[in-house]
């Protein structure tokens, strides 16, 4: 990924959180994923094909997802299925919006939801995998992107 692509992706994620919640998300400095970087409890993974190949995942904890859902659904409490669904939908929206940067040949799969620490999580991502740290409403999460 080029620096321009990374900056454009950061802009997409920033606008996503702001559009839904009216609370700005603060992006940390992107870095190349290390083996010691752990996923949060809920992870949505999207495979990328077409002109670019690889994958994107967004990983977050239960507290962030529950807070974020309040802005979409109001006062409802989310069960486990809904938390899985939400992390998949957040990943889907961010990856889909990336077509603004990468164009219509940036083909995205339907999201796969993973739980906990999964060793093979980065299998679909092509190195180098960039991590974008995200801080929103006092919760930390991150987006990982690995494209050929």
């Amino acid at each position: 990924m080029t620096e321009t692509e990374l900056k454009a992706t950061i802009k997409i994620v920033t606008e996503y959180f702001l559009n839904i919640t009216n609370i700005p998300a603060v992006m940390g400095l992107p870095y190349i994923k290390k083996d010691t970087d752990l996923a949060f409890a809920y992870t949505g993974l999207i495979g990328i094909s077409g002109a670019r190949r690889g994958g994107v995942y967004y990983t977050a904890g239960k507290e962030l997802l529950a807070d974020f859902a309040q802005f979409i659904l109001g006062e409802e409490t989310l069960d486990e299925d809904a938390l899985n669904d939400l992390v998949g939908e957040m990943t889907n929206t961010i990856a889909g919006n990336m077509r603004e940067v990468f164009g219509a040949t940036f083909l995205i799969s339907v999201p796969i939801v993973l739980r906990g620490q999964i060793d093979t999580i980065s299998m679909r991502l092509k190195p180098p995998v960039f991590i974008i740290p995200i801080n929103w409403n006092e919760h930390t999460s991150h987006l990982a992107i690995g494209l050929e």
């Binding site: 889909g96 077509r99 164009g103």
Partner: peptide, 9 residues
Amino acid sequence: VSALKDSIT
């Protein structure tokens, strides 16, 4: 209603 935010789609 889609996340595919490009003009071609």
